[in-house]
Design a protein around this nucleic acid. Structure first.
Lengths: 258, 258
DNA sequence: CGGAACATTGATGGATATCAATCTGAGTGG
DNA sequence: CCACTCAGATTGATATCCATCAATGTTCCG
């Protein structure tokens, strides 16, 4: 209730701006190759970074959201329900844009975003971004591809909630997180750091915290994972993928081979 | 399995192009006011309409989807699951774009779209649309607002599946459809034509056809609706909205009042 | 050292799936 | 025009999954 809304402290960051946009540029160029001029246009949108603490709300429903992307840490985008429950709709990872409604001047968001860890985020100048989009086709294409990939993740999330058991849904979610981190070299072997608490996972999968515990336990007993917060280790990715019908195609950027 | 994939017959439509884009132009200008020049730019993208029959697949996973919007009829966008089940992720109504992945040259879709009714769809020239987007800010804004509103609908769909009982989820879905049709004057009083079969609704809500029947029955007994396919009548919108926590804010285009 | 959020486990209840039977209406071919 | 077939709709009986209630243990933080 009495949640803190303000950034805990503005970091008087002395790290050069080139590092601050690094995460976003890396992400976008993984979607579409960017020229030096493209990168320069993005840099022009760069603003000073802001820090948030675990459990802070970055935005709330009804806000005109700021144009922010995550630099480091995990955040959860969710819909608060009238009965106090929450339904998480997106896990925000470094490089993710907090809420794209920020691209529309005057638009309001219907979601809230809270920090699952301490967060460093980076603001972007809307005007400079609009310039970059309209004058730099590569940037526009990369951003649009990002929209499509996020939509794909959301669609698979719908399928998890609607058509999978809790064990399948959890396995599928974890494999998605694994795939995303593998791609950017953010895993040590088959070990991944997942800072989510079990109630967070419950809000993601639409189940109770108690049942999250039982579901993790069942995957553990099936020999698929080891999980000791915050460390997650995959023991048999192939069998796990088969178990829940995970196919990473929906996370891939490029046009198909055909 | 031997589903028909091809349009049943190309309509050698003699209706003027001005009518064919009517649905899309009306939709977009409800998002952002369009000047005559904006409308003219959209007309330049217009192609000949295509008809599909009920149960036809318009696209399938892995396709490079065509740039199409629905002119008349209802279609369902869904993810086919490995076990043969389907999870519907979007109800496509007149004015909806079938799959926005079509805006990205070479992109593949992960969804399928099948016709719930006979459909008239209208193709758009990608090049002309890109021109319209890059040269006409009103068009770009309207299209982007459409993206945001569709995302909002998808987010609420996630919340329906994750955090609502089947009766609440069904009530919420029906109220969403009611709201969308009210706005465009497509209802007679509180009566709406819903061409979906109960198995379709099951694929939407992630429940079995048998349970759809029981759920409809419970809303009927609660005095909330009458439903006799394809006719749906709302008996007590206020109580129904309260029952399922429906708030149409997520369907509204404009910036909030504040 | 005390408290609060998190995690685990057991017992029980409720919601939805599954299996099965029947009924209706619409399209189809004779 | 009628018989047939099939998809859809309804209802009942039973099984499964997950929620709820409750107790306990644990970790972390003030």
């Amino acid at each position: 209730m009495g949640g803190s809304r303000e950034p805990s402290h503005k970091t008087g960051m002395n790290s050069p701006s080139s590092f601050d946009t690094g995460v976003l540029v890396r992400r976008l160029s993984s979607y579409s190759p960017l020229s030096d001029a493209d990168v320069a246009a993005l840099k022009r949108a760069d603003r000073s970074p802001v820090s948030y603490s675990r459990q802070d709300d970055i935005i709330r429903p009804g806000d005109a959201p700021p144009l922010l992307f995550i630099e480091s840490g995990w955040a959860l985008r969710y819909l608060p329900m009238t009965d106090g429950d929450q339904q998480v709709v997106q896990v925000l990872l470094p490089g993710d844009i907090v809420d794209r409604a920020a691209f529309l001047p005057g638009a309001r968001t219907i979601t809230a975003v809270k920090c699952a860890t301490d967060i460093r985020a980076c603001a972007l100048c809307p005007r400079a971004m609009h310039e970059a989009v309209s004058e730099r086709p590569n940037v526009a294409r990369a951003l649009w591809l990002g929209v499509m990939l996020d939509e794909n993740r959301l669609l698979e999330h719908v399928a998890r909630l609607g058509r999978r058991s809790s064990a399948e849904a959890l396995a599928h979610l974890l494999l998605e997180l694994r795939h995303l981190h593998k791609r950017i070299g953010a895993m040590e072997g088959e070990t991944l750091t997942v800072p989510l608490a079990q109630p967070d996972i419950g809000d993601l999968l639409g189940i109770t915290p108690v049942h999250v515990s039982r579901t993790i336990s069942s995957l553990r007993h099936a020999g698929l994972i080891e999980m000791d917060r915050p460390t997650l280790r995959f023991l048999d990715v192939k069998r796990m993928s088969l178990f829940c019908g995970f196919d990473p195609a929906y996370l891939e950027a490029g046009p198909g081979p055909a």
